[in-house]
Amino acid sequence: MSEAKRPDLAAMLAPLGRALVAAELPVLERNGLTMWGYVVLLGLGDEPVYTQSALAKAIRADKTRIIGVLDELQRRGLIHRAPDPADRRAHLVSLTPDGRTTRERAQREIQEQEDQLLTHLSAADRRVFLRALQTLAALTAEQ
Rank of each mutant, 00 (worst) to 15 (best):
M1Y: 11
E3Q: 08
E3N: 10
R6P: 00
D8C: 01
D8V: 01
D8E: 09
L9F: 07
L9N: 01
A11E: 14
L13V: 11
L13E: 07
P15C: 01
P15L: 01
A19K: 08
L20G: 07
L20A: 11
V21F: 07
V21W: 10
L25V: 11
E29H: 13
E29F: 06
N31M: 08
G32V: 05
T34K: 13
T34N: 12
T34P: 12
M35H: 11
M35L: 14
M35V: 13
G37S: 02
Y38W: 13
Y38A: 09
V39G: 03
V40M: 05
V40E: 02
L42T: 07
L42C: 10
G43V: 02
L44S: 00
L44Y: 07
G45Y: 00
G45M: 06
P48T: 12
P48L: 07
V49I: 08
T51I: 02
Q52H: 05
Q52G: 10
Q52D: 00
A54F: 00
A54W: 08
L55M: 08
A56R: 03
A56H: 03
K57R: 10
R60K: 13
A61W: 03
D62V: 03
K63V: 10
K63D: 15
R65A: 15
I66W: 03
G68P: 07
G68K: 13
D71I: 10
D71P: 02
E72Y: 14
Q74G: 13
Q74D: 13
Q74V: 04
R75L: 10
R75I: 10
R75A: 15
R76L: 14
R76D: 12
G77K: 04
I79A: 02
H80V: 13
P83E: 07
D87A: 12
V93P: 03
S94N: 04
S94H: 02
T96E: 00
T96Y: 05
P97D: 14
D98Q: 12
G99N: 03
G99Y: 09
R103E: 07
R103V: 01
R103F: 12
E104M: 08
A106S: 07
A106D: 01
Q107I: 01
E109W: 04
E112T: 10
E114F: 03
D115L: 06
D115S: 09
Q116A: 14
Q116M: 06
L117N: 03
T119C: 08
T119P: 00
T119H: 13
T119G: 01
T119M: 12
L121V: 00
A124M: 03
R126D: 02
R127A: 09
V128D: 09
L130E: 15
L130F: 04
L130K: 14
R131P: 00
R131L: 12
Q134V: 10
T135V: 14
L136F: 14
L136C: 01
A137F: 11
A138V: 12
L139Y: 10
A141P: 05
A141C: 07
Q143L: 13
